[in-house]
Design a protein around this nucleic acid. Structure first.
Length: 560
RNA sequence: GACCCCAUCGUCUAACGGUUAGGACAGCGCCCUUUCAAGGCGCUAACACGGGUUCGAAUCCCGUUGGGGUCGCCA
């Protein structure tokens, strides 16, 4: 096609591909460095599947000392939800996914929380809507080389053709005899243009359906498709490119070597390969990952933005999961040997794990909240109390004002509580799955929330006679000593038990329970109930040390 | 409908022609234990089906079934 006509279609002063390539020179990274990207369209929140995808890209690129960049695919202005693109980098940062390039909110200073929407990187703009001229360079090239053409078919006509094809059992799409504008003469094109008709640009496919397209996926291996003979739109009537065009142009100029994307793109591979060939560029390697599914009525389906709150990654923040728990869960789905590694390396950072694209499974995983819980519990159990406190503090600031108030008022007290049976290796307590569980674990330590009723206590401890109960309590108030070791402390409770006819030795008791009023466990329970209002608590000795004698005496005096 | 992908315990998966089909989560049981939470030990539980190929198949091939995806001026 002649330049004059091309300019009528695309406008004047369009740079050539060569000129664009001078502006965006190749990266010249050392051998083996992978360049990957996350390229979401700004249509709302970040999906768990997106996090999974970007995590894999992140590992592949950074593990190879390569580059991970963010690109916003905002070529569909109808679907775009304004303002959501800007949320993406911060949300991913909250999961410790750090981009090297792109419109990155924390660009100014990686280690602060300051936001700054400036772009970093020499391959921008990183918003596709700002790259219209760049795409035109490539479309111009295609038009020049008879690999693209304007199409004046109206949406109505296309719809009609589509239903005709369906009715007659034909493949749907703009191909072969159905590609009506494919062979328009220059005169016809000019005539329609002069009439002011709206048009799009279509790629002129060089394939035949009978052809075989072979390609090797990073994850799925060899795949063979029939030839892709449909003349797809590459430039829409709003002058923005379609995904397909934008993809091949951007990933060419931005030097992407590895594309990780959802399996829904698998069937577009023949098209993309063809487009790369048409512009004379080498395609990147593709890895098509499976979706994260959910079971509904016995069938699998993708985690859905609408129906499933857990599809939104923000959900995990709200619930109080450590973000690293979510990452490790996803890592586990991606490379199931991760958990074996984790067992041998309980405290090493997840990035140290040797990630492998080959181990990615190509069937979809069912999302398993229970497994996430288990991972999360393990991670929280490994945190020093100080760190747990700090994380929970940040969490509560945003999601639980009551807890936040307490943490602010008595940080040391709460940290001590959190430290009960912590840092004792694999035997550490594992009763906190997420930060939101903490309130329940600490609340009874605070007098303002501790509201035990006399009558309730009597009911809970109904096996004790009133005189025994008051006797035990009064005695204990006199003998409790904060300086006691755990053994001393236990000995006192045993002695007290004996004094009131409760067996101090469990074995002995089990042999002949009828000889006693009860056992030491019953007596310990008296203190547990009075001091905590609960039947189940962590280690009472440690708990009491933290409560302090004054508070203990006060609580033990409830029945006075 | 056409094309493509997928198929091992309830779940995530290991196995790369020869294993009593392994692990983790969940479940169950026992032990430990002043209550929990843990921890220790153990148990239940899977190769979708049918044909081949082979001395030998979860593994390779073909088919069936089931599930998923794609077939837009959406990405």
């Amino acid at each position: 096609m002649k330049l004059e006509l091309i300019e009528k279609l695309l406008g004047k002063n369009i740079l050539s591909i060569e000129e664009q390539k001078i502006k965006y020179p190749s990266r010249n990274l050392p051998e083996g460095c992978k360049v990957s990207r996350f390229a979401p369209s700004p249509t709302g929140y970040v999906h768990l599947g997106s996090l999974y995808q970007v995590l894999i890209s992140e590992r592949l690129s950074h593990q190879s000392n390569g580059i991970l960049f963010l690109r916003i695919e905002d070529t569909d202005q109808k679907r775009e939800i304004k303002g959501t693109a800007e949320l993406i980098p911060a949300m991913l940062k909250s999961f410790d996914i750090i981009f090297d390039e792109g419109p990155i909110a924390y660009a100014c200073a990686k280690d602060t929380n300051e936001t700054c929407l400036e772009e970093i990187g020499k391959y921008g703009p990183y918003y596709q809507s700002q790259r219209a001229d760049i795409y035109k360079s490539f479309i111009k090239y295609l038009l020049e080389n008879d690999l693209a053409y304007p199409c004046f078919c109206t949406p109505g006509e296309l719809e009609e053709q589509h239903s005709f094809q369906e009715k007659n059992g034909l493949r749907t799409g703009y191909y072969g005899e159905f590609a009506k504008c494919r062979n328009l003469s220059v005169e016809e094109i000019e005539k329609k243009l002069n009439e002011g008709k709206s048009f799009i640009i279509r790629f002129k496919s060089q394939n035949k359906f009978e052809d075989k397209v072979k390609y090797t996926d990073m994850i799925r291996g060899n795949i063979e498709f029939p030839g892709y003979d449909i003349d797809v739109p590459i430039l829409k009537s709003d002058n923005l490119p379609t995904y397909h065009m934008a993809h091949i142009v951007d990933d060419t100029l931005m030097g992407t070597t590895h594309v990780i994307r959802g399996a829904e793109w698998l069937s577009s591979v023949p098209l993309h390969l063809q487009l790369f060939k048409a512009i004379g560029q080498k395609p990147p390697k593709y890895g098509h990952i499976a979706t994260i599914d959910k079971l509904e009525n016995g069938n699998r389906r993708k985690l859905s933005k609408r129906k499933d709150p857990e599809a939104n990654v923000e959900y995990y923040h709200e619930q109080g999961y450590p973000s690293v728990a979510v990452i490790e869960y996803l890592l586990n789905i991606a490379n199931s040997n991760f958990e074996d590694w984790r067992r041998t390396q309980p405290t090493t950072e997840w990035r140290e794990f040797q990630f492998s694209a080959k181990k990615l499974n190509n069937s979809g995983a069912l999302f398993d909240l229970i497994k996430l819980d288990s991972i999360s519990k393990e991670i929280i159990a490994q945190m020093p109390a100080k760190d747990l406190f700090a994380k929970a503090f940040e969490w509560s600031k945003k999601y639980d004002s009551e807890l936040f108030g307490l943490m602010k008022k008595e940080p040391k007290y709460i940290e001590d509580i959190l430290n009960i049976e912590r840092n004792i290796g694999k035997n550490s307590r594992k009763d906190i799955t997420k930060y939101s569980d903490i309130k329940n674990e600490i609340i009874y330590f605070f007098d303002e929330y501790f509201d035990l009723k006399k009558a309730n206590v009597r009911t809970l401890l109904s096996t004790f006679s009133d005189s025994d109960l008051t006797g035990i309590l009064n005695d204990y108030k006199n003998i409790y000593d904060e300086k006691d070791t755990q053994d001393d402390w236990w000995k006192k409770i045993q002695d007290l038990s004996e004094k009131y006819g409760y067996c101090a030795n469990m074995k002995l008791y089990k042999e002949a329970p009828e000889k006693f009023k009860g056992n030491v466990s019953d007596v310990a329970r008296v203190f547990r109930i009075l001091l905590t209002g609960r039947d189940q608590t962590p280690n009472m000795y440690l708990l009491m040390k933290i409560m302090g004698k004054e508070r203990i005496i006060k609580r033990l005096s409830l029945l006075d």
